[in-house]
Write a protein that binds this DNA or RNA. Sequence first.
DNA 1: ACCTGAACACCGTTCAAGT
DNA 2: ACCTGAACACCGTTCAAGT
Lengths: 199, 199
Amino acid sequence: MITLAGNGSPRAGRPRRADARRNHEQLVEQARIAFAESGVDASLDEIARRAGVASGTLYRHFPTRLDLIEKVLAERIAELVDLGNRLLTAEDEFDALHTWLRAAVTHALTYRGLAAFVMNSALDRADDPVPTWHAEMFAVAAALLARARRSGTLVAGADDTDVLRMVNAIAWAAQDTPDSSAQADRLLALLVHGLRPRA
Amino acid sequence: MITLAGNGSPRAGRPRRADARRNHEQLVEQARIAFAESGVDASLDEIARRAGVASGTLYRHFPTRLDLIEKVLAERIAELVDLGNRLLTAEDEFDALHTWLRAAVTHALTYRGLAAFVMNSALDRADDPVPTWHAEMFAVAAALLARARRSGTLVAGADDTDVLRMVNAIAWAAQDTPDSSAQADRLLALLVHGLRPRA
DNA sequence: ACCTGAACACCGTTCAAGT
DNA sequence: ACCTGAACACCGTTCAAGT
């Protein structure tokens, strides 16, 4: 027997019952607040508490912390991907890459602990269902890198993954600094300088 | 009234009682094993258990996790400082720096979580009693950087702290990778390439 | 279909009581 | 002088019982 209209899994779409939908929204909303306050390692128990639900309800809506983070960041990531796509037609190929890397670092600085979380949950283990947001970000980054490489403005031997790993590492290294934005810029400058080929 | 012979603090030297000295040694020994197995975030409770003491005893000997890590790594750090001092008289100023940075990354890869721990406990907050090992490492690094800078083989505008922060970030980004050593080398190559001035 | 909240298995840290 | 181990305050995660 084949079920046609969805399988009972709560992740296969927004909840249909009114109270469940309200809980879902409140969880995302309170997660956003908690992440901003304490970083993406914020207590899930407290997020549930603030959303006015029991802990089990949070797990029903978002089985893993990643699911919650993903939801909270979805729009920003989409913007980052859009930016990348637009930059693919920018004049200076290296500048386009530089601009996007800057935006990527800024993104990774959105919440404390985000860079570390991304590193642990995606770049290392070959997780089967790579979160789509990651896949799209990676694709855009790869396209920008490929274009710069073709134009001869990118140093040879700079692996795509390595560059993205460095971007993540830079956000991580800057995140708890007094002026994390300026700190990240300085570290990124070091990286970008190394990405230019020698004259 | 002034106490002359020590102030009763357990940290003011090795324990004098035989059982305490044995416990001290066992704690360091078991910490080394636990760190190698699970990284520097290893459970302190289990370290105590393996050392055959109660948790309170561990805290008596090592009030903070940092004290334990420091003790376990003391010798390696001393070697790293020695290496740096020797490299100060090496022929090629840039190569000397490169070699030391490589050793520093390798050091930071000794135990999982070490780079993160160092970042959180030292580079950010201006901890009053900066652990001596850090101070010495920083001094050697600064000397090597200064020498390379004087010789004109180091790019202008590379801040000492920034470079060390990047070294730490590289170790962090490589630590959970299948071949962390090779991964770290590749990332370090990117950094070092950026440290050379343009011809 | 969804929610509750107790239960479980872990943490780190402190401190009164012992020897 | 030093050690023990219970106590406390936190975690994340699961699941039987409810509505």
